[in-house]
């Protein structure tokens, strides 16, 4: 097997696990995602922040052992804040995100397959069409490159990770106490 096809096979297998987990977690369902955005059901936030907490510790250990390297994305306010807000409006209208829609399609949702999927492809193509203009006029606003939180706060990785974990734990405690 060539290196390329081995990579692709790995991607497929990791994807099966990821999709399985998302479905079991309930987040391939429109009702759960919209429930989160209406602040009635905190499943999405619980899954994402637990993944971030567990993932952060593990991948930083891997980095310190020299077994993995990071690729933090470069960004700017014009790119991440405006793009993020547009994404959010689409997220609420569609009720799935690019990852969970794959799972929604797999579990039989036709609104995802017939409406959402062509929409995402069309939206991606539209962005590709206007990319050079946006790059010149918007993406360059408020650039910060591949800045990370430890560099922003001039602190070591673990000095940022420890309070981050504490904040996530506190949030979970408050959510459970509120019965959410």
């Amino acid at each position: 097997m060539t290196a390329k096809s081995r990579q692709r096979l790995q991607g497929l297998l990791f994807g099966v696990i990821f999709g399985f987990l998302l479905q079991k977690g309930g987040v391939t369902r429109f009702d759960v995602i919209v429930g989160q955005l209406l602040l009635e059901d905190f499943t999405v936030v619980k899954i994402m922040l637990t993944a971030v907490a567990v993932g952060t510790v593990g991948i930083h250990l891997l980095k310190h052992l020299g077994w993995a390297s990071f690729s933090p994305k470069r960004g700017s306010w014009g790119r991440n804040a405006i793009g993020g807000l547009l994404f959010g409006v689409g997220f609420a209208l569609l009720g799935y995100c690019p990852g969970t829609i794959a799972g929604a399609i797999g579990s039989g949702w036709l609104d995802a397959l017939v409406g959402g999927l062509p929409g995402i492809l069309l939206g991606s193509a539209l962005l590709a069409a206007v990319y050079p203009k946006l790059q010149a006029r918007v993406f360059s606003r408020g650039e910060f490159g591949d800045l990370t939180l430890p560099r922003l706060f001039k602190a070591s990785d673990w000095l940022v990770i420890a309070p981050l974990l504490a904040i996530i734990a506190l949030l979970f405690l408050l959510l459970e106490r509120a019965g959410l």
């Binding site: 994305k73 991440n80 405006i82 807000l85 689409g90 997220f91 209208l93 409406g115 991606s124 962005l127």
Partner: peptide, 26 residues
């Protein structure tokens, strides 16, 4: 529902590529 999913999808696709990532990548 189909029209909302289509228009939401367009915004989501456009926004995710604008922001250079989605709920999993970012």
């Amino acid at each position: 529902r189909l029209l909302a999913a289509l228009s939401g999808g367009i915004l989501l696709g456009f926004g995710s590529r604008w922001a250079d990532g989605c709920t999993s990548g970012h």
